[in-house]
Amino acid sequence: MAVKRISSDIDVVTAARQRIKNVFSNGVPVYLSFSGGKDSIVLADLTYKLIQAGEINPSQLTVLFVDEEAIFDSIEATTKAWRKKFLLAGAKFQWWCIEVKHFSCLNELSSDETFVCWDRRKRDVWVRQPPPFAIRNHPQLRPRIDNYQSFLPRVTMDGIMITGVRAAESIQRLQYMAALNMGAKGITGTNTIYPIYDWKTADVWLYLRDQRIEVPEVYLQMYQVGVNRNQLRVSQFFSVDTVPVLVHLGEYDPSLMERVLRREPNAYLAMLYWDSEMFHRTTRKRRELEGEDTKDYRALLKEMLFVRPGDFFNTEHKRKIAKQYRKMFIQMDGMARPRDYKKMYGGLTAGDPKLRTLRAIYQDISCAYADYAKRFRKGGEANG
């Protein structure tokens, strides 16, 4: 899907403040999703300062923090500080420590890819202990079945949720947000508003600097060990898009790494095999070590998806993901390039629980084919 960008005559900070005020002007409950990361801190600060200025009503606001157990100590400390600020300002703050499900990319060799936060069966190896004020259960929660993305909409149905998701984080989010106003399932249907959706990463860091906002220490630690500024993510450790934090965790926080290994013994795989097919990496270092890649990825995919799927996809979740990749292979075969088949293979082998890689491949193939068609109509391919 093509995305049209439109310039505005106001800056992103002014636009975000106006969006937040518009949400509160509806007079319904407002839920702010807080993670302790840089984007949610920006959204929290914008909201908090509007409360201080008397421009929005704090009694409408409930801040929601879903504690994923395996988080940095500095994220916990930052969240506690913001909890205190919002409570003193007259808002509510709900700290959830509940059994929600994640998919762990570290358990590829087992039949269970699930990581359950605050798993009651593994209480003795929890990475942290929940704070005494945490909410531990809810009538609308299906423990060990729900992820937080499916649970939170149930407890926020009476209002509007605002979150710090930004379109610049990935092409998939850009496409999703561009389509939000289309049809009945648009932004009003989901009850979610994204006040800083159009902020770039540089805008986030600039705001934090200009407003002199303290950020969790882990950002500095990650940057010091060489993590790129655009890759500074501090979410739960075990999903395929956040597992990179484990690569250097032992360098700047050995105590936390020790606790993580007790909880998830396979966490060491990230350090040993980061530059490998297991984590869908294609770095220069890996290419130098492995030499020229001569694999026929289209043939490998046909083997995995059509000839021997039972040998490769031995869990219900893997079979669901494989079904979507099988559809893509059929739809795109003939349009896809060798590098696209390689990406498909990488998505299947590394894991793609949220189908982000699949959507990116769809986008890449579609755009490349549209460009080819334009050039062909103009005679470019015929003459070339």
Rank of each mutant, 00 (worst) to 15 (best):
Y341N: 01
R337Y: 05
A322C: 09
R319G: 06
G346H: 05
G334H: 04
A336V: 10
G347N: 13
K323F: 06
T349N: 08
N314D: 13
G334W: 07
G310D: 15
R308V: 04
I321K: 02
P338M: 07
Y297S: 03
N314E: 11
R339E: 15
R339N: 14
G334A: 03
Q324R: 15
K302P: 01
T294P: 10
K342E: 10
G346D: 12
R308T: 11
A322K: 05
D333M: 03
K323H: 13
K320P: 05
K302R: 14
P338C: 04
M332S: 12
T349D: 02
E316W: 11
D296I: 12
T294D: 00
K342T: 05
H317F: 10
M335P: 11
I321S: 03
D333V: 00
M335R: 15
K320R: 15
M304K: 01
D333R: 01
I330P: 03
M335I: 15
R298Q: 14
D333L: 06
E303N: 05
E316P: 09
P309Q: 06
E292M: 15
M332K: 12
I330G: 00
A322H: 08
Y325F: 04
Y297L: 05
I321R: 09
R339S: 15
D340W: 03
D333S: 11
G334K: 11
G351Y: 10
K318W: 04
K318I: 09
G310I: 13
A299F: 11
F313H: 01
G334L: 09
Q324S: 14
I321L: 00
G351T: 08
G351M: 03
T315S: 07
A299I: 12
D311G: 11
R337N: 02
L348W: 07
M328F: 10
A299W: 06
A322T: 06
G351A: 04
I330D: 08
A299M: 12
L300D: 00
K318F: 04
L305P: 07
D293N: 15
D340L: 10
A336Q: 09
M332D: 04
D296V: 12
Y345K: 00
F329K: 00
Q324W: 09
K342S: 07
G351F: 01
D333K: 02
I330R: 14
D340P: 05
R337G: 09
I321E: 04
M332E: 11
E316C: 11
L305K: 09
E303S: 03
G291D: 13
G291E: 14
L301K: 02
D293A: 13
Q331R: 13
M335E: 13
G346E: 12
F313I: 10
G351W: 08
F312N: 09
A350E: 09
L300K: 10
K318Q: 14
T349P: 08
E316A: 14
F312E: 02
G351C: 03
D293H: 13
G291W: 13
